[in-house]
Amino acid sequence: MRLLAPVLAFLALLSTAVQAADDRYTFVMVHGATAGGWEWKRTGEFLTADGHTVYRATLTGLGEREHLNSPEIDLETHIQDVVNLILFEDLHDVVLTGHSYGGMVVTGVMDRIPERLKHVVFLDAAVPEDGQSLWDLFGGQGMDPDRFKDGFMQVPWVEPGAKPPYSVKHSVKCFSQPVSYRNPAALALPVTYVAFVPADQSVEERAKKDRSWQNAQARGWTIRTFPGGHVAQQEDPRGVASLIADSVGDRNRR
């Protein structure tokens, strides 16, 4: 019995270590329009501190890749950015997250390489149907023509000489190009939709107006809410990091 006790203690410790390893995930995070991987830095740092592996994608022409910006960049370019990141880093069982416009991008990635994905989290993100563009999804709402010129969506809150990190102009083709979402393996992936709900808006009100929420619900995805504005990851990066990690266990309804 004296010899058995330390053996049992060792086995219990080993089991705990294996369980801890099983709870560590590989995250690939995709930002929204005009932003960059920088917008998810603090959230990524919290996930890394929790033992996870984090890749913060920056889409072509945005963030630190602003020097590649062009009106010829489209949604397909950005989908390929993330697909190549996953393939060239040889990532498997990826927890893929998309914020805002990033929902269009991760939808395309799901359709392209579902076998590399473990779970997908749409964070206050666009949830398009197969063959829809972002403009189609929102019916042109918020697409003020005065904000679009020379092939770009101009961002009025960026001032000349601003210090990085900052948002940049974004090619209009990213918003007008439709996305493919028809791969049966993609349709079967477990997905969580998270609505960032500000204090002055009720959850019920948001659910009635949010077409992405409605699409997610119709597909049987898990619906979660988080208190905060559209960039809640900057307001509460710790909370958003914990939410993302907790979402990995979510399963679709039949």
Rank of each mutant, 00 (worst) to 15 (best):
V7E: 09
W38Q: 10
H52M: 13
F148K: 04
T16R: 13
V127A: 02
Q217M: 02
Q80M: 02
G61F: 02
D210Y: 06
G229I: 10
I113M: 05
R24V: 08
E205F: 08
A9F: 07
A195Q: 12
P6T: 06
S202P: 03
L8A: 11
A186S: 15
K163S: 15
I223W: 13
N84I: 03
T60S: 03
M153V: 09
Q154M: 09
L187R: 08
S180E: 15
L117P: 00
V106Y: 08
G44W: 01
A199M: 14
L3A: 09
D136E: 08
D250E: 10
Q214M: 12
N183T: 02
A185N: 14
G228P: 02
T107M: 10
I244S: 01
K169T: 08
A12W: 06
I79V: 13
L14N: 05
D146G: 07
Y193I: 05
P165G: 02
Y181C: 00
V127R: 04
V231Q: 14
L8R: 10
G229W: 11
L117A: 07
E66H: 09
G140W: 09
R251N: 07
A199N: 12
E129S: 14
M104N: 07
E72H: 07
Q177G: 04
P227Y: 06
V105P: 01
L91Q: 01
T34W: 15
Q214V: 02
S100L: 06
F10I: 13
A195K: 04
P164W: 15
F138P: 04
A20V: 09
S171I: 11
M143R: 07
L47A: 11
D22T: 01
H119C: 06
P164F: 15
M29A: 06
Q19Y: 12
A232C: 05
A9K: 15
K118T: 06
